Structures are given as C-alpha cells and as structure tokens.
Simulated assay, not measured.
Amino acid sequence: MDAINLRSVSRRHGSGDRAVTALDEVSLDFPRGTFTAVMGPSGSGKSTLLQCAAGLDRPTSGSVLLGGTELTRLSETRLTRLRRERVGFVFQAFNLLPALTAEQNVALPLRLAGRRPPRARVREVLDRVGLADRARHRPGELSGGQQQRVALARALITRPDVLFGDEPTGALDSRAGHTVLALLRAMVDDEGRTTVMVTHDPVAASYADRVVFLVDGRVGGELTGAPAAEIATHLTGLEARASGPETRPARPETRPSEQAAQPC
C-alpha cells in the first residue's frame, strides 16, 4: 500500500469568473519509505498539493488517501485526530514557542493530544536530530538550524506515517540546510520514513528519490535520482512555460497558518 494516493484532486478558490484553480485533476502516488520533492514555478500549486495531501485543506473534488484512509470523508474531529497521530509537519517558519525549552516544544504535540510525553521518547528524538545537549535551551538560545531541528524532532515525536515539509530549509544558510536535509534523507534510509517536501531549491530536491514538478496546477513531469543541475534545468523550462502568453495568471500559493503548523 502506498503512503499517500491522490486521485483526480482539484482545488478551486472562488466561483464564477473569479474562480481560480490551484490544483487541476492531479493524480499522484507516494510509495511508503520514499522521499519525494515537489517543485514548480510560483503559483503552480505546490503548497496546495501538500496541504490537501496532509489533510490541512480539503480538495474541491477528487480523493486523498493516507495509508488507505479517505481523508475527504472524515469529519473535522477525526481529521484533526488523524493529523495528530499519523502526520508530521515541518515548515519554513520554525513555529516554536519561545517560552518553552526545546524538550517542552518537542513534547507539545503529545500534550495537545492529552497524552503524557514519555521523557525517554522526548530525549530520543532530540538525540536523533543531534540536540540531546540542548534539551533545556529555549529557542532564543539556539541557532536557526538548531531551531529547525527541534521542529523536526517535534514532528517525529508521534512516529508519524508521513512527514511533510514545506520549504523546511528556506530560512537556513547552506550549512544548516545541509544538516536538516541529511537528517531527512537518513530518516528515509534508516527508518523508512515517508517524506514529502515542497522546495524551490534544486540542491534540496536532489536529496529526494523523486522530484515531481507542477505547473499551472497540473503535474508537469518528474525526475528520479537526478542531480541538482538536471533538476534546475527542468525547473527553468517549466518557469519559461508558466510565463508564456497563454498561461493563465498564477495564483499566489497559500501557506498554512502558524496555528495549522502545529499538529492540532
């Protein structure tokens, strides 16, 4: 069974002449234990795809299955429970609570779910991201890369079926970004963690097993095991198509709110 299946997924905003189609009949499969990067020009539907696949947004039509569970048929209560228990999120904004220590931020998803966080589990995931010695540091005492690693540990605390990242290295310098990407790659290779990452960076995308390209809300091809240079060339071609005279106006992609970034 695949980790995620999208079948003819469309997402439209507005109605009538003002309607904008962010996703247009997208069908994709994400096999278990793989790392997929999603790329495309601005407004191509990348973040909307991630939000629909993760249950943060509901498609206008089509179906989304996560591990065989049809998300579009779930009530808001059941969808919230599924996100808490089976999905992890890492976004460009770290979304750490400044008054809490690293270990308290990591434990937050379990507390929000009404569960007592096992101290050993919290320390385990902090150790997994190389921050066991920073457990009692607050975000203001950590570098940007360290804060993102705390956010990654927080996403892993519930042992999610799928880890979603929306530009997880976008706010980091190249060295810190490499550290985070190497951790994501290792989690796929060592633990079989299914990972889906939206990125604009060909170097980041080269860490993935597969790169799926979107243009104008549709799948515009994919590459497997490609180096950064090949990925960049393909993306440049898509951007040229997207800026052509017959291309419909691009819609700025919506991003989950800071509250949605927490697994609530």
Rank of each mutant, 00 (worst) to 15 (best):
A3E: 11
L6T: 06
S10W: 06
R12A: 13
D17H: 07
A19R: 15
A22N: 04
D29Q: 14
P31D: 10
T34H: 12
G40W: 11
S44R: 03
S47N: 05
C52H: 07
C52L: 11
A53N: 10
L56H: 05
P59H: 09
G67Y: 12
G67Q: 06
T69P: 05
T72R: 10
L74I: 10
R81P: 04
L82F: 12
L82V: 12
E85V: 05
R86L: 07
G88R: 00
Q92G: 07
L96T: 00
L96H: 01
A99T: 15
A99I: 08
L100M: 13
Q104C: 06
L108M: 15
R111E: 15
R111I: 14
L112E: 07
R115E: 15
L126K: 00
V129E: 02
G130W: 05
L131M: 02
R134E: 01
A135M: 07
G140I: 02
G145I: 03
Q148I: 02
V150N: 00
L152S: 04
R154S: 06
V162H: 04
F164M: 12
L172A: 11
L172T: 12
R175T: 14
L181V: 08
A182N: 12
L183Y: 09
R185C: 06
R185L: 09
D189N: 11
D189E: 14
D189A: 15
E191P: 01
T195P: 03
M197G: 03
D201A: 13
P202Q: 09
P202S: 12
A205F: 06
D209Y: 07
V211S: 02
V212S: 02
L214S: 00
V215M: 08
A228D: 13
I231P: 01
I231S: 02
I231Y: 07
I231F: 13
L238Y: 00
L238D: 01
A240Y: 02
S243R: 15
G244T: 01
E246H: 14
T247Q: 14
P252K: 09
P252L: 08
R255L: 14
P256Y: 02
S257K: 05
Q259D: 15
A260W: 03
A260G: 08
